[in-house]
C-alpha cells in the first residue's frame, strides 16, 4: 500500500534521474562555454579554423538546399495561388517562407547533420583516446580550448550562411517565375522585396543565431560524454545529430510563436 506507492515513486525518480543529470550537465557546459567567451585565454586560431570547417565547409551544401527550397516553394505556391488568380504574388510568398522559416530551419538542419555530428565524433574520439585528459594534464581547459571556439564559430557563421541560403532560394524561385510562370523579373523581385518587413528579417537572423547554440553545444556535449571506444564515438555522433535536429524544431516552434 503505502510501501508500494512509495516504491513506484522512487522507481519513477530513478527513471528520471539520468535525463535530469544529463540536462544539468548540459546546462553546466553551456554556462562554462559562455563564461569563457569573455575570459582569457582566447584561442583565436581555433576560432578561425572552426569558422573555416564549420562555415566555409558547409557553403556548397547550403547553396544547394537553399536553391531547391526556393524552386520547390515557387512551384508549389504558384499552384495554390493560381486558384485565387494571384500567381503574381509568388515572389512575396517565396520571400516570406524562405526568410522566416525555410532558410533558417533547412540551413540549421544541414549544419546539424554535418557539424553537430562532426563535432561529436571529433571530440568523442579525443575523449576515448584520453586526449581530453591529456589537455587538462597539460594546462588547458578543454571547454575553453574546444567548446567555446566551436560555439563562437557556429554563432558567427550560421546567420550569414542562412542569408546566403535565402538569397539563393529567392534566385531559384525567380528562375521558376521567369521561365515557367511567365512573371516578369521586375514583378517577382518587387513583390519579394516589398513583402519583407523588419520583423521578418529579425526573425530570419535571430533563429539561426539560436540554432547555432543548439548545434555546437549538443555536438560538444555528446562528444565529451562519449565513452567505451570507437563504438561509443559512433553512438555519440548519432545521438548528437538526432538531439540537435529535434532541438532545432522545438526551438523553431518557440521562436516562431514569439514572432507571429
Amino acid at each position: 500500500m503505502v510501501a508500494s506507492k512509495f516504491g513506484d515513486f522512487t522507481g519513477l525518480l530513478d527513471f528520471l534521474k539520468e535525463p535530469a543529470a544529463a540536462a544539468q550537465e548540459f546546462f553546466l557546459l553551456t554556462g562554462r562555454a559562455l563564461r569563457n567567451v569573455v575570459r582569457a585565454p582566447h584561442y583565436a586560431d581555433d576560432i578561425v579554423l572552426q569558422m573555416d570547417t564549420i562555415g566555409v565547409g558547409s557553403l556548397v551544401v547550403v547553396v544547394f538546399v537553399g536553391f531547391f527550397a526556393g524552386v520547390v516553394m515557387a512551384l508549389q505556391m504558384s499552384k495554390a495561388l493560381s486558384s485565387y488568380g494571384q500567381v503574381g504574388r509568388t515572389g512575396m510568398i517565396v520571400a516570406i517562407t524562405l526568410v522566416r522559416e525555410l532558410g533558417p530551419v533547412l540551413t540549421a538542419l544541414m549544419m546539424a547533420g554535418r557539424n553537430a555530428s562532426g563535432i561529436a565524433s571529433e571530440l568523442g574520439s579525443m575523449k576515448v583516446t584520453e586526449q581530453i585528459d591529456a589537455m587538462r594534464a597539460l594546462g588547458t581547459d578543454p571547454i575553453q580550448k574546444l567548446v567555446t571556439p566551436r560555439l563562437e564559430a557556429t554563432c558567427i557563421m550560421l546567420p550569414p550562411l542562412t542569408v546566403i541560403a535565402d538569397f539563393v532560394g529567392l534566385f531559384g524561385g525567380w528562375l521558376i517565375a521567369e521561365s515557367y510562370l511567365g512573371l516578369s523579373t521586375r514583378q517577382y523581385w518587387d513583390t519579394a522585396w516589398q513583402a519583407l518587413g523588419w520583423m521578418d528579417v529579425a526573425e530570419g537572423l535571430i533563429k539561426p543565431f539560436v540554432f547555432a547554440f543548439a548545434i555546437a553545444l549538443i555536438g560538444c556535449f555528446y562528444g565529451l560524454r562519449a565513452s567505451g571506444g570507437t563504438q561509443g564515438v559512433g553512438k555519440a555522433t548519432t545521438n548528437a545529430m538526432v538531439a540537435a535536429t529535434v532541438l532545432i524544431f522545438v526551438l523553431d516552434v518557440m521562436l516562431t510563436k514569439l514572432f507571429v
Partner: peptide, 11 residues
C-alpha cells in the same frame, strides 16, 4: 608529467 595508456598524443 603523465604518460597516458595509449599515448594520447593530439592527432
Amino acid at each position: 608529467g603523465m604518460l597516458f595508456q595509449e599515448s594520447a598524443l593530439f592527432d
